[in-house]
Design a binder for these strands. Structure first.
Lengths: 233, 233
DNA sequence: TATAATTTTATGTATGTACATATTAGTCTG
DNA sequence: CAGACTAATATGTACATACATAAAATTATA
């Protein structure tokens, strides 16, 4: 049998995906092991390994030592979302970016905020409210709490010309975080700021950022009706 | 100088991330090349390569042949979202899943639907409306159009006991797709089905699925107020 | 001096070998 | 027959080497 040589991890990945897609390897089925595939494809096991590792990362196959590799029964669709700096998001959509600071105060945050940040309930934090605009129209309303314990330098920054978003990125390293997407109705104040009607549905992104065990900031971004977050799978 | 040996790709990744996080390697800065790092860490270049490749995938560094590797100036937060089958999503939250078919018809879809699916505007498609419930309460309202051209077998399926979601996963292979997240206000019908009030903000997920060049299905999932999509970054 | 050809260099990939590790399957033993 | 060892096996990782490739830097050329 004269098999074509498939000797790049990309081609191995493509071929394996093809076999799964065409049901040549059915869901739940055990596929040949790396050594056999390497032999069949005419490449090294490391090459097969890299391809299969990528496919496993995408959720299409499950791999376990000794047990082997099998096609996932119900592949989860795994989407990768890029959450850029808002300025870039706006500029990438071909609009000119501008920024408007609405308020900057030191205050004790609502209990829900200090609780999710795992910070003492009575400690004051920096509270920044700002509007991001694209082509002079409201694009997103930012409501941010910054832990002064974690980022004391923020006390010196007015956030009038540079957004807290970018300032923090440049000045407060972070290790991990959590993002939450949701929908809520615009209150009267939200509506006025986002130039929409009260009661309309806003898309909301909450982000909580940590540096190791210390909460850095919690930001809530409210987008006016019509905003869409899109990604390929 | 007696350097500790860092000879697993995990430890290399951790150490590099640490240096970036502590600003030992500042944003925008060129970091040592793979060969030098391998020498310093006491491991093979392939090991450094794998670690750096992963870090690049996460958006923290930018790599270019010959130009070298530099710390990203404004790292995009890259979030990976798992979109499981709804049944699993509900069961993973510890609720018992149930499913209610609301309607199943063959009809010509609205123009917006046929257009995004790149299918002839006058062709009838299968239209399935169903409710997914957790612990007997509405969890998500599904509104789905299925291309009969791409999945003729769907005509034989009643979707009364098995949801179109799971049936399609098992019977219609797909190669890629697109997901859109948004927020909209509940109409009167939505509200009745999702047991909420008209006008309240629903979280909406639109998914468009393709098999190579043929659109398979377009599904819109509406979630009642309070629903959150969460992920770690 | 602008442009084209060439060299250099850092990353990207492929390979064979070796060993580590998790997990299953089998076997031994009380 | 239950439970404890033991062998077998597929994936996971590390390494040294080699060559491929993109792009910057340099040199040659019109």
């Amino acid at each position: 049998m004269n098999r074509p040589i498939i000797n790049s991890w990309q081609s191995v990945e493509q071929e394996v995906r093809r076999r799964i897609q065409t049901r040549e390897w059915a869901p739940g089925e055990l596929i040949p092991n790396e050594a056999d595939l390497a032999l069949e494809f005419g490449c090294a096991r490391a090459t097969v390994n890299r391809a299969l590792r990528r496919i496993a990362d995408s959720g299409l196959i499950d791999r376990r030592r000794k047990a082997g590799t099998r096609v996932a029964l119900q592949p989860v669709a795994r989407a990768t979302l890029d959450i850029p700096v808002i300025r870039r998001e706006i500029e990438d959509r071909g609009m000119t970016y501008s920024y408007l600071l609405l308020s900057r105060t030191e205050a004790v945050p609502p209990h829900a905020v200090s609780a999710t940040m795992q910070l003492p309930a009575h400690d004051a934090q920096l509270h920044v409210v700002a509007l991001h605009l694209g082509n002079e129209t409201p694009y997103a309303l930012e409501d941010r709490w910054i832990s002064l314990a974690a980022v004391p330098a923020a006390r010196q920054e007015r956030f009038e010309s540079v957004s807290s978003n970018e300032w923090l990125l440049a000045n407060a390293p972070w290790s991990h975080g959590q993002i939450t997407f949701a929908a809520t109705q615009a209150g009267r104040e939200d509506a006025a700021r986002l130039a929409c009607d009260p009661g309309q549905a806003m898309f909301v992104i909450d982000r909580l950022t940590w540096n190791n065990n210390a909460a850095i900031t919690r930001v809530r971004l409210k987008y006016p009706p019509g905003y869409q977050l899109r990604t390929d799978i």
